[in-house]
Design a protein around this nucleic acid. Sequence first.
DNA 1: GGGGCAACAAG
DNA 2: CTTGTTGCCCC
Lengths: 78, 78, 78, 78
Amino acid sequence: MAATTDDRLRLLIERVERLEEEKKGIADDIRDVYAEAKAVGYDAKIMRQIVRLRKMKPDDRAEMEAILDTYKAALGLG
Amino acid sequence: MAATTDDRLRLLIERVERLEEEKKGIADDIRDVYAEAKAVGYDAKIMRQIVRLRKMKPDDRAEMEAILDTYKAALGLG
Amino acid sequence: MAATTDDRLRLLIERVERLEEEKKGIADDIRDVYAEAKAVGYDAKIMRQIVRLRKMKPDDRAEMEAILDTYKAALGLG
Amino acid sequence: MAATTDDRLRLLIERVERLEEEKKGIADDIRDVYAEAKAVGYDAKIMRQIVRLRKMKPDDRAEMEAILDTYKAALGLG
DNA sequence: GGGGCAACAAG
DNA sequence: CTTGTTGCCCC
């Protein structure tokens, strides 16, 4: 009988749905923080860039800067 | 003096970072559920479609499926 | 001397950039077609689904649709 | 009669499909250039970063650098 | 409300 | 790691 199988699928689906709801809630919280930041004069777009930069490992940031130099040198850019 | 401003920025950034960590944790949980489903024989890709369909309002879903059928008929996609 | 090396790099980079420009041009064309379709009453989102379905091999598509129906039945998604 | 409508949809779909094929062809060409670059000793990953950097408008790059300074100052990073 | 853009998920 | 999809923000 298929009911057991069906229930297993349903349970898995419902777990996913619950988790996605939680995830959406957090995404909304993040949005709220940016809205609050904007309300006190910060630029949300720039804040996002900062968050991205802070997420990088220091070595990676250093490498990125080195690449920038390499590219400038090899391509003749100031 | 800028310290107050800087702290306010830092606090906002750190709130975002904390929330993003939580969000990532949940995304990982979702991935785990799909992995578990796959391990017992379900097709994760199709499960995702189901989740998407269940997220829609019934009327919207019915309408979408009707349009899809219309287009399939028009293109000879039996 | 590094000039030869630099030029070789520059040439490769420029070839990539030219190709990426072309690619972007075509992506814009695709966008235009969907916009035109929308203007005469078609649903672009569903058209994209059709394009995806037509890309699949008929057998694969049939199988996918069969599984999808099975899951829908199991979840009571009429 | 629906045949005209159907043909219009089919024509639009086929235009999209043709364009997507072209796009894929160019993507393949790009891949080939990177493969060739790798074969003569360049690092494809770094080349991609260079391409990305060159894609930015100089002003944006300058702004990005300013943002980097701002973030370092406000967040106390070296 | 639409179009462009950036994050997210899929392959 | 790259591409396609989706949701968000600005216009």
